[in-house]
Design a protein around this nucleic acid. Sequence first.
RNA 1: CGGGGUGUAGCGCAGCCUGGUAGCGCACCUGAAUGGGGUUCAGGUGGUCGCCGGUUCAAAUCCGGCCACCCCGACCA
Length: 570
Amino acid sequence: MRFSNLFGKTLKEIPSEADTLSHQLLLRAGMIQQVAAGVYSYLPLGWRVLRKIEQIIREEMDKAGGQELMLPTLQPFELWEESGRYPSFGKTLFTVTDRREHRLVLGPTHEEVITELVRRYVQSYRDLPLLLYQIQNKFRDEPRPRGGLLRVREFIMKDLYSFDVDEAGLDTSYQKMLQAYKNIYSRCGLSAVMVEADSGAIGGKESHEFMLIAETGEDEIICCSNCDYAANVEKAWSVKHELEKKTPLTVEEISTPNIKTIEEVADFVGVPTSHTLKAVFYSADDELVFVVIRGDMEVNETKLKNLLKCSELRLATEPEVKAAGLVAGSASPVGLKGIKIVADDSITLGSNFIAGANKPDTHLKNVNYSSDFNVDLIADIAVARLGDSCPKCNGKLLSSHGIEVGHVFKLGTFLSERLMAYFLDRNGASQPIIMGCYGIGLGRLLAAAVEQNHDDKGIIWPMTIAPYHIYLCPLRLENSDVAETAEKLYQDLTSANLEVLFDDRDESPGIKFNDADLLGIPLRLTISPRALENQSIEIKWRKESQVQLVPLKEITSITKELLESHSEAV
RNA sequence: CGGGGUGUAGCGCAGCCUGGUAGCGCACCUGAAUGGGGUUCAGGUGGUCGCCGGUUCAAAUCCGGCCACCCCGACCA
């Protein structure tokens, strides 16, 4: 490709809309262009990267036994009512109305459509297992798109769906995909970690995410310093420290004027916050829920939401709390009636707690679970704490930020049951198909690759996904030696099946070198009068600073060897 | 949806407070010089100042409404 013909232009200044690094670099390199909030065009260079990622994913899916197909973007709205997932997706569903006033959904994911397809063709256990996938645009009306390509409303996703006869089959499919995913990230030159995850709106039980560790990542990952335990903070748990159990004493009222927060209460009484019970109020599908947790812990809303099986969970507003007759700052589960009470199991790991009294400026001491109050539900709903013990090995837990670049789910049978996807087993009994689904966002992966591979000059593409392999950079094009050598080299390298971006522009060396660095092409060949006098050409890796001279005669073969050995190394 | 911010040429910005019909840098076009890390000089193209309405002799500027985009929170590949 001749740079002079290339559509797109590099920018010296950072567009003001971008403050995420990958977003800035991709815009400056002329690889993407914003069309609306969370909606982007890919320009030729960006699209080349995307297609390389796509091809790697396709190869790994095929290798794992996947069959590629293509499902429509438009989906009947009724399908979402049938599957029961409409409420959990809610406003993130983009819907359109056709001329007959029928509602259609722009597919945010395709479990419904593919399950309906599969149920027509699968009647017997002999038709299974199946791994079906597609690479296609998805639409989600995200509440807040952000970070350029990191979180958008229209995005290209690879989604694979597995269909098995039993749990063992699902395990096999799941393992195949985990391996395929690991292969994909490593072939893209990226280091991803697999973490336990919550399955959210997709549904199902077991789920893992693949995270690229990056400061800008939206997700918090909890991992063990000692073993391989790693989980999204939404899912993570830590071993809770149990307090010394004392003989339960009788509840007593104490006066606590103007004392409201847990810290104030603990200070006032002279105990650590772990000796108090904290009350938090939520609205779960518009029902007020009273949550109790030990004072030194925080409520994990994802866990709470799963426990309550509700589709919308938020902190209750002050008016709602008042309307329920609760006293903010002194609310108590003791003697509370008519409100659902949910507790974290930490309230059993201690005794004689300080709690509210449901009276202003008053608290209770010596409050004990089960003797002084009861709850409707009790489970682990706490945020895992750093420094606490790992649930697997007792090592210390650490945290880091990550970008979610893949998510896999064991769906089980809830969708196949609702959508009537059954098969006959060996014994002639009708069974629901066991499903799994496995997604990768390609644009996000591309952006994450930039987040992980750049310096202050620009992008440093891993060889396997670089838009071009070689940046052919002649200096002083008015010198006929340089011009002729460059033209010939461009022909030779291209004929050798190497991907070359030929900077044939009459620009200053500074502009060319800076653009080469910004675009992040792995290998740069510089042709200059100076080096030509010695019958040689300069060669430089983007990620290194040394320049090497290579004899002109051998340049094509040496370049080819270099690139090949480099690709294998990845 | 709640909180904060921004909209002036393709990009980055100034002008707005104190109304008088738009300016700088980059990019782009022409010419000349230059030539190893965004080179210099000269000349030039490009804007209904986000939109609608109001005030005024006169609005980028003042007032009202709307819209778009970005950032922080509830969601996800």
